[in-house]
Amino acid sequence: MLSLHPAPQVYLACRVTDLRKSIDGLAAVVQEQFQLNPFSTAQFVFCNRQRNKLKILQWDHASFWLYYRRLEQGTFAWPKAESASAHVISQRELRWLLDGLSLQQRQAHLQVNARQVI
Rank of each mutant, 00 (worst) to 15 (best):
W78M: 01
R69C: 04
L94A: 00
R70Y: 07
A81I: 11
T75V: 09
H87P: 05
S83L: 05
T75R: 10
E72G: 00
S102C: 01
H109Q: 15
R70K: 11
I89Y: 01
E82P: 00
S90G: 04
Q73I: 05
Q105T: 12
R69T: 00
L103T: 08
L101A: 11
V88C: 12
Q107W: 12
L98R: 07
D99T: 09
Q105F: 01
R106S: 14
Y68W: 03
R69Y: 03
R106Q: 15
L97H: 02
V88M: 11
E82W: 02
L98K: 03
L97P: 06
W96K: 05
S90N: 06
E93F: 06
A86I: 09
S85R: 12
Q91A: 13
L101C: 09
W96N: 07
V88G: 01
R106L: 13
E93S: 02
W78S: 00
L101I: 14
S102F: 05
S85H: 12
L101Q: 14
L103C: 01
R69E: 03
H109M: 14
A81P: 01
L103A: 06
H87A: 12
I89W: 05
D99G: 09
L97Q: 05
D99N: 15
Q107M: 11
F76D: 04
I89S: 04
A77H: 10
G100A: 04
E72Y: 10
A86R: 01
S102T: 14
Q105N: 13
S102Q: 03
E93K: 12
K80I: 11
R95Q: 14
G100R: 00
Q91N: 15
Q73N: 09
L71G: 02
E93D: 13
R70H: 09
R69W: 06
E93W: 04
Q105P: 02
W78Y: 05
S102M: 05
E82M: 10
R70V: 03
K80A: 12
K80E: 14
R69N: 07
Q104A: 14
L71A: 00
Q104L: 10
Q107V: 11
S85D: 13
A81M: 07
L97R: 03
Q73C: 00
A108P: 05
Q73R: 08
S90C: 05
R92M: 10
Q107I: 06
V88L: 14
Q105K: 13
Q107E: 15
L103W: 00
R95H: 13
A108Q: 13
K80G: 01
W96A: 07
E82A: 10
S85M: 10
E82N: 10
F76A: 04
Q107G: 08
L101F: 14
Q107K: 15
Y68R: 08
H109A: 15
D99F: 08
Y68N: 06
R70E: 11
H109Y: 15
I89M: 09
W96Q: 08
Q73A: 09
L71W: 08
L71I: 01
S90K: 04
P79M: 01
Q107L: 14
Q104T: 13
Q73L: 03
W78P: 00
A84N: 12
H109R: 15
R92V: 13
I89Q: 01
A77L: 04
V88D: 08
A81G: 02
L103Q: 07
D99P: 00
